[in-house]
């Protein structure tokens, strides 16, 4: 014998609603990936505050975009370094260097060249805890062991470009998306600092370059 709550029967939404939703879905997923400045207000501002906040955020985003257009990272083949025709490294919006437990960080990265039309991006968030008694102001996170608290590999959008690279690889790989701090193991811990690393992988899983964020402090 089994028991059940009396759920309403399966039914269709409003007439034509599934088709309308499908067309909307297809238009959304085939949208050209936008630049961070264009998507910033869409992902962070509640609808009812848009009219007030958009101009402020747009100005701030423009300032961030101008000042943090290029973030070279330490790696064997850094994006943004001199090893290739990289367009820009990992960009974070907002890029205040401070995160909170419910922060949602907009991130984007462009990379060139990749050898074919398939590329993916391995994202990794690392946490370094302050040893007890450490002064955060003098703490060197690179000398301490780190823990991976989030990892995900996402496909990149690859398109042909007129700029060619080694072997005439005229392909530009782009990615933009969001990272939610609440998805990270352990969330945001005030006794730790965090960094986001991104590695561009080709179709064979080979690393082509990497980029990373600055160290992020946790607040709240």
């Amino acid at each position: 014998m089994t028991d059940q709550i009396a759920f309403p029967p399966l039914h269709d939404p409003h007439p034509g609603e599934l088709e309308r939703r499908k067309q909307h879905l297809l238009s959304e997923i085939t949208r050209e990936p936008g630049k961070a400045w264009r998507l910033l207000p869409e992902f962070t501002i509640p609808r009812f505050r848009l009219r007030v906040v958009v101009p402020i955020v747009a100005a701030a985003a423009l300032a961030v975009g101008l000042s943090v257009a290029f973030i070279p990272q330490s790696s064997t083949n850094p994006i943004g370094g001199g090893g290739g025709n990289a367009v820009h490294g990992l960009m974070l919006t907002p890029d205040t260097g401070v995160i909170g437990p419910s922060s949602v960080i907009r991130a984007s990265l462009d990379y060139q060249p990749v050898p074919d039309t398939s590329a993916s991006l391995q994202l990794q968030v690392k946490r370094v805890a302050f040893p007890p008694g450490t002064d955060p102001n003098t703490f060197d996170p690179n000398s301490e062991p780190s823990q991976v608290v989030f990892q995900e590999t996402v496909p990149m959008h690859v398109q042909a470009t007129t700029v060619t690279g080694p072997g005439d690889w005229g392909y530009l790989a782009s990615w933009s998306g969001t990272l939610s701090v609440s998805d990270w193991t352990g969330g945001c811990q005030s006794n730790s600092i965090y960094t986001i690393n991104a590695v561009v992988l080709d179709a064979n899983g080979g690393g082509r370059g990497s980029s990373g964020s600055r160290w992020l402090m946790c607040s709240g």
Binding site: H11, P15, G16, R20, R21, L39, F43, P46, R47, T178
Partner: peptide, 29 residues
Amino acid sequence: RSERRYAAALRRLPAPDAQPDFAGTSDEH
């Protein structure tokens, strides 16, 4: 959280075509 993440996408949802909502269907829902 999901609504915040996809607020922009949902705002781009086109308005539905005006369709008659039959009383029986409406009552059912």
